[in-house]
Amino acid sequence: MAGKNLDPSSSPRALLGAELRVARERAGMSQAELGEPLFVSGSFIGQLEAGTRRMHIEFARQIDDILDANGFFARNCGAAAKSKYPDHFAAAAEAEALARAIREYAPLIIPGLLQTEPYARAVFRAYQPTATEETIDELVTNRMARAALLEDPTTPLLWTVLDEAVLRREVGSRQVMADALRHLAALARSHRIILQVIPFTAGAHPVLGGPLRLMSFDDAPPLVYVEGLETGLLLDDPATVNQRTLTYDLLTASSLPPRESLALIESVAEDYDHDEHA
């Protein structure tokens, strides 16, 4: 690990994680033993090694010292931290690209992985009303690129629960909404995603507080992502993950079954279409 740097074009975070695993094992340390002087769990080290966590510069410097890595991790930390996504979402976006399964609840808008281009454009324009067209174009391009995850016919498993408000809130125009909901229906009918709707009639439910995303991986501990306005937090504490998993399970139990959810989505899409052409 002398002086060679990582190639930033070759998934830097994954490469940095792989190098961390090699260096740790060469030093004869377990993940928990490396985590102890950093005041993080062994699971956190596992996530760094799997590429599901970003290595921040302060950790990189300490790891260099502990593993006698001659500054390798500090030098390459910057390349691994580069992202085309906003800072508060970058870690979650990069983790979802490695996930085996994603389960999420969306209370207000269609989740990014499931948006159409016109819907995404309307969302970003609402978020940034004074942004240039070039800025909006870049945001939309990056969001559409994320959806390439769904081109694989089976992985990741994506299970989404939408609040009925997502269907009823007109984003862009009625035609944009009709097309967006038909896109959801097509993904569900092709069995690419599991889709449920929690209706207004369900009343209070376990996730009234906001969006929730659970991600599980083949070679790293599961993560929970919670999001607010321009803020986001990845959580890996096992007790927290277990509690949020139970919360999601209760949510799905309160939601319409997939077949009834699909019927509702297509019915609302027809309403938008009818009103658009009336």
Results as ranks from 00 to 15, higher is better:
Glu170Gln: 13
Ser190Ile: 09
Ser10Cys: 14
Leu212Ala: 04
Asp271Gly: 10
Gly228Lys: 09
Leu251Ser: 01
Phe39Val: 11
Ile136Leu: 08
Glu19Ile: 10
Glu25Val: 14
Pro206Asp: 05
Ser216Ile: 11
Ala185Lys: 04
Met215Thr: 04
Ile110Phe: 04
Ala60Ser: 00
Thr160Val: 15
Leu181Ile: 09
Val171Tyr: 06
Glu104Gln: 15
Ala2Phe: 03
Ala32Gln: 14
Gly209Met: 12
Trp159Met: 11
Pro211Phe: 04
Gln175Tyr: 08
Pro111Met: 08
Arg54Phe: 11
Leu187Cys: 06
Pro153Lys: 07
Gln128Thr: 04
Leu187Phe: 08
Leu184Ile: 05
Ser41Met: 04
Glu36Arg: 12
Leu67Trp: 04
Phe59Trp: 06
Ser83Thr: 14
Arg174Gln: 11
Asp152Arg: 07
Phe39Leu: 13
Gly203Trp: 07
Thr116Asp: 01
Pro199Lys: 13
Val40Cys: 06
Ser216Asn: 08
Asp87Arg: 15
Leu184Glu: 01
Gln31Met: 14
Asp219Ala: 14
Thr116Arg: 03
Met144Gly: 03
Leu149Arg: 15
Asn242Pro: 07
Glu260Arg: 13
Leu38Gly: 05
Leu67Arg: 03
Ile45Asp: 00
Asp64Lys: 00
Ala91Glu: 15
Arg103Cys: 09
Leu139Val: 02
Leu16Ser: 01
Ala220Val: 06
Met144His: 09
Leu235Gly: 02
Ile45Thr: 00
Gln175Cys: 10
Ser10Asn: 14
Glu49Thr: 00
Lys4Cys: 02
Val268Cys: 09
Ala2Cys: 09
Thr201Glu: 14
Val166Cys: 12
Ala239Tyr: 10
Ser255Asn: 02
Leu114Trp: 02
Thr130Met: 01
Arg143Met: 06
Pro257Phe: 07
Leu184His: 00
Leu246Ala: 12
Ser216Lys: 03
Phe44Ile: 12
Glu33Ala: 15
Leu181Met: 11
Glu58Asp: 14
Thr116Glu: 05
Arg168Val: 13
Ile265Cys: 04
Pro118Gln: 05
Glu133Cys: 04
Tyr225Asp: 03
Ala185Pro: 03
Pro238Asn: 09
Tyr105Gly: 04
Val268Pro: 06
Leu181Tyr: 04
Arg174Asp: 11
Asp271Ile: 03
Ser261Asn: 13
Tyr119Ile: 09
Asp275Asn: 10
Arg182Gln: 15
Glu138Ala: 14
Ile193Phe: 03
Val140Met: 00
Leu157Gln: 14
Met144Asn: 04
Leu98Lys: 02
Glu276Phe: 11
Arg143Pro: 01
Lys82Asp: 10
Lys4Phe: 00
Arg192Phe: 12
Ser41Ala: 08
Asp7His: 07
Asn242Trp: 06
Thr141Pro: 04
Asp219Pro: 03
Glu227Ser: 11
Val123Thr: 11
Asp273Gly: 15
Glu104Cys: 08
Ala131Arg: 05
Gly51Glu: 05
Ala165Phe: 07
Asn142Gly: 14
Arg26Asp: 15
Ala239Val: 13
Glu49Pro: 00
Thr247Cys: 13
Arg61Ala: 11
Ala204Pro: 13
His277Glu: 15
Ala253Leu: 13
Val197His: 01
Arg213Cys: 09
Ala263His: 10
Met29Pro: 06
Pro129Gly: 05
Asp65Pro: 01
Ala23Lys: 06
Ile63His: 07
Leu212Phe: 02
Ser216Thr: 15
Leu158Phe: 14
Thr135Lys: 13
Val123Phe: 01
Pro86Cys: 11
Ile265Gly: 02
Arg26Pro: 06
Ala60Val: 09
Ala180Pro: 10
Glu104Gly: 10
